[in-house]
Write a protein that binds this DNA or RNA. Structure first.
Length: 302
DNA sequence: CCCCAGGCACCTC
DNA sequence: GAGGTGCATGGG
């Protein structure tokens, strides 16, 4: 890798990349052998991704270091890509303090303490749409596998250091796939949803490049995609559109709210989401991610 | 063999 | 618009 560096995060908790990249918020980072990270003794896990950035494919590796985040990339723009993809402009200490002051039950404070360093990733929009269409009734590791197979089957290959990485397919590339093709990739009953959504975006029926400014209008737009309901739309808003104030309410969050914030229970998951968004403010999505991670770790089989 | 996994589309009423 | 049902697949 030609370019490398360390992004320092002074005064913030050390980033927990495993929790950030492997707990179901993003499916577009792959864990690698630590020895693939050259230039220093590094026993921490290394993750890679490849994506279009400023109109060119960029391969990036990241790993935790004592002083921040170590990165390597095929391009100089890799540093900026990492900055954006991990939302490093968000000061995690400031957000933690803010959410701590707003927590009415104490359980979020526990989660913030136990999983200090967990961040909210920001992925490209289209791949996030498809990833979360694949997510209902599915375990995190299997969603990751589905996304990997889509990239390898329909994405553009990118060579770097005698290794091949696959960009996530464009809408046009993915629209080439038939429903049966996608079933062969083990997408199951989500196959027609992915096929229809990719086609609708590719042929211009659904415009995701010029999104409205209002969150509610973006949600409405996203829900035009087959396979996208309220919860999936909120995941796309949070992880694919960089809307840090959005709270996806899934079964875990539902249970957490019933137990720890009963007064916030709404008539519908979306109504509950609104209550959480009002309580926790513009970084409510971080609160959601910490609560999700906490409950999955303690009560689930993650 | 059973159950369940970051819900959603589709069909009634 | 509210309420029920089917849904592919793999791991425990």
């Amino acid at each position: 890798m030609k370019h490398s560096g360390t992004i320092s995060l002074d005064g913030q908790p050390q980033t927990d990349l495993v929790a950030t990249l492997e707990s179901g918020q993003t499916f577009q980072w792959d864990r690698r052998d630590a020895e693939m990270f050259s230039g220093q003794n590094n026993t921490n896990p290394v993750f890679s991704t490849v994506r279009q950035y400023n109109g060119e494919p960029v391969v990036v590796f990241v790993s935790e270091s004592e002083t921040g985040i170590r990165w390597e990339s095929t391009r100089k723009s890799g540093e900026e890509l990492v900055q954006r993809a991990l939302r490093l402009d968000d000061n995690l200490q400031t957000i933690t303090d803010d959410l701590t002051s707003k927590d009415t039950s104490g359980v979020l404070i526990e989660a913030l303490t136990e999983f200090a360093g967990l961040r909210v990733p920001h992925d490209p929009l289209f791949s996030t749409i498809i990833s979360f269409i694949c997510s209902p009734q599915m375990r995190v590791s299997r969603i990751h596998g589905m996304v990997q197979r889509l990239a390898q089957s329909y994405g553009t290959p990118v060579e770097a250091d005698e290794e091949t990485f696959y960009l996530f397919p464009t809408p046009e590339q993915l629209a080439e796939a038939t429903e049966d093709d996608l079933r062969e990739l083990k997408l199951g009953y989500r196959a027609p949803y992915v096929q229809r959504t990719a086609s609708a975006i590719a042929n211009g029926d659904i415009d995701i490049t010029n999104l409205p400014s209002e969150t509610d209008e973006i949600r409405t737009r996203l829900k035009q995609c087959t396979g996208v309901g309220d919860k999936v739309a909120d995941c796309i808003l949070l992880y694919g559109a960089g809307n840090a104030g959005t709270v996806p309410v899934d079964t875990w969050i539902q249970t957490a709210v019933e137990e720890h914030y009963p007064s916030l229970m709404g008539e519908s998951p979306r109504a509950t989401a609104q209550n959480l968004e009002e309580l926790f403010g513009s970084y409510a999505g971080y609160a959601q991610t910490y609560l999700f991670h906490y409950h999955r770790k303690h009560y689930g089989n993650a």
